[in-house]
């Protein structure tokens, strides 16, 4: 009974970690879980970095240029007058 419960719990845990059985292969699960969390926290740390001013300024500049009808293509040329 207890053993059965135990193994069922293990299987469920495994399924949660690796929905795709072929992905986990025969690799050590701890290491794979470690890789997964490292990857996520790395990405999240990049995600939370402040956006450099030069990129925000670039967007403002692009916006300005297209408002003034600069060389950024506008799709509504025929609606002129």
């Amino acid at each position: 009974m207890t053993n059965e419960d135990e193994s069922r719990r293990k299987v469920t845990q495994k399924d949660q970690h690796y929905s795709n059985a072929d992905v986990s292969g025969g690799i050590d699960e701890h290491l794979q879980a470690h890789i997964g969390s490292q990857l996520k926290s790395m990405y999240d740390s990049y995600l939370n970095e402040p956006i450099p001013d030069r990129l925000v300024e670039l967007l403002e500049k692009l916006d300005e240029v297209s408002r003034e009808g600069g060389d950024v293509p506008e799709s509504d040329l025929e609606s002129g007058r």
Partner: peptide, 26 residues
């Protein structure tokens, strides 16, 4: 402008993840 600004953190995160360096990513 607003839409691109919203996606900027993800674009940067993807870029830094790919190339490994913030200056090249920017």
């Amino acid at each position: 402008r607003k839409e691109l600004l919203e996606h900027m953190p993800n674009m940067r995160a993807f870029a830094i993840s790919l190339c490994g360096r913030a200056d090249r990513a920017d």
